[in-house]
């Protein structure tokens, strides 16, 4: 049986663009998550999400692993980019789209065919 930390590492390792959030992109349950996921969606690339309200183990363990106490958290290429404030600031100055587009392009060949 895998531990929660193993699950987190696997999620971060297998999904080059991953957001941990409260609720879903279609129905965010927190203003900070809503703002962050809206910025991410505007970049126009596919991304993965984990609803931490449905995953209390991840909600409890990820802040320790990430040295980041709150949600949302955006992880790109295995690295924590930041939470809502950083995501929105990067969106406004264009850095977010650059990062997301570059990451999607880099990984477009290693996604398994559906």
């Amino acid at each position: 049986m895998s531990t929660t930390i193993d699950t987190i590492k696997q999620q971060i390792g297998e999904n080059p663009i991953l957001i941990y959030m409260k609720g879903s992109p279609q129905l965010p349950q927190c203003g900070f998550s809503a703002q962050a996921v809206q910025a991410l969606m505007s970049c126009g690339e596919r991304f993965a999400f984990v609803n931490i309200l449905d995953n209390p183990d991840i909600r409890a363990e990820l802040p320790k692993y990430a040295s980041w106490p709150t949600f949302p958290q955006l992880w790109v290429d295995g690295e924590l980019v930041g939470g809502c404030d950083i995501i929105v600031e990067m969106y406004q100055n264009g850095e977010l789209e650059t990062l997301i587009k570059a990451t999607a392009a880099k990984h477009k060949d290693d996604q398994p065919e559906a």
Binding site: F32, S67, W68, P69, T70, V81, D85, I86, E89, M90
Partner: peptide
């Protein structure tokens, strides 16, 4: 930015573990 935030979070670990729910 991520490191700046982590420095602040580290200083406020007690508050974040207790009463504080959101910190912009």
């Amino acid at each position: 930015p991520v490191k700046r935030h982590q420095q602040i979070y580290a200083l406020l670990a007690d508050e974040l573990a207790g009463p504080v729910h959101a910190l912009a």
